[in-house]
Computed example of a mutant assay.
Amino acid sequence: MDTKKPKSPKSEKSKVAKNLKEFFIDSLKDIYWAENALVKTLPKMFDQATDQKLKTAIKDHLAQTKEHVTRLEQVFESMGLKAEGKKCLAMDGIIKEGEEIMEETAEGPVRDAGIIASAQKVEHYEIATYGTLAAFAKTLNERTALDLILKTLGEEKKSDCLLSTIADTNLNSQVVDGKLQSKDLNAV
């Protein structure tokens, strides 16, 4: 009688990271997939947006995201690895949620507010990921990788601030049943 448990299909497909370097590489594959997915998604957001400042921010971020893909390829190369992606379940979910928001909101300021909310979720995920990757690169003494990751991290933070500014300057006020809201709130 065979007492060995059969391996699940998932355990056969995925390799378990046994040390920080393997986990770092796995995380790089994850964000590489995510950035490539965004290159495909940002044009859809651009087409759905109506606010000109938002459209410009999305267009600029698409160019920046393509540069992030290139930088990640340089990170892989600096470590003697081939750039490859692994499906990022988190980014896949954020993108699907954003697509749903665009389908379920009226064209104009409401949809634009939804696009900003979705884009900021993307930025926050990227900020968290690149921050973690920077810490790993520093610990592993991967200097080239660290420099490239920190550059991208700074750009992601600036993009998040820009989205907040676009929403705060006028866009969100347009969404509230046509009533302009006071911008003198010191809440956030």
Rank of each mutant, 00 (worst) to 15 (best):
D92K: 10
R143E: 13
K55T: 07
D147I: 12
V188M: 07
E100H: 02
S27E: 09
G131M: 14
L28I: 10
E73Y: 03
E104F: 10
L20M: 11
V175A: 09
E126D: 15
P6K: 04
P6G: 02
N170K: 07
T139S: 12
T165Y: 03
M79P: 06
K121S: 07
A187V: 13
M102Y: 02
K138P: 05
L42A: 01
K179I: 15
S118N: 09
E155D: 14
A145V: 01
E73D: 10
Q74N: 09
H124W: 12
T132K: 10
K53L: 06
M102V: 09
V39Q: 02
E123F: 02
D60L: 04
E73T: 04
D60P: 00
E97A: 08
G98N: 10
E123G: 04
A128I: 13
K55R: 15
H61V: 06
I166Q: 01
K29P: 08
A17Y: 12
E97K: 08
S159H: 00
I58L: 11
N36T: 10
G80H: 14
E155R: 03
E67S: 11
G154C: 03
K157R: 11
S182A: 14
K157I: 07
G85S: 09
E12T: 10
D51Y: 04
G178M: 08
I101R: 04
Q74C: 03
E84Q: 08
E73V: 04
T144M: 00
L185W: 14
G108L: 07
L81P: 09
H68M: 11
T3G: 00
T3L: 07
K15F: 10
D2A: 04
G93K: 06
F24H: 12
N170Y: 02
F24D: 09
I94N: 01
E156T: 05
Q120E: 08
L72Y: 03
V122P: 02
T132M: 03
D160M: 02
S14Y: 15
S14H: 15
D92I: 00
E103N: 11
G114H: 14
A90M: 09
F24L: 11
N170I: 00
A134E: 11
D177Q: 08
L42Y: 12
V175F: 07
N36P: 00
T70L: 09
V122M: 06
Y32C: 05
T105D: 03
K44S: 08
A90C: 13
E142S: 02
K29V: 07
L146I: 01
M45S: 06
L140M: 05
K18P: 00
D92M: 07
D160I: 00
L54D: 02
K66H: 14
F76G: 04
P43W: 07
K158S: 12
T65N: 13
K4E: 01
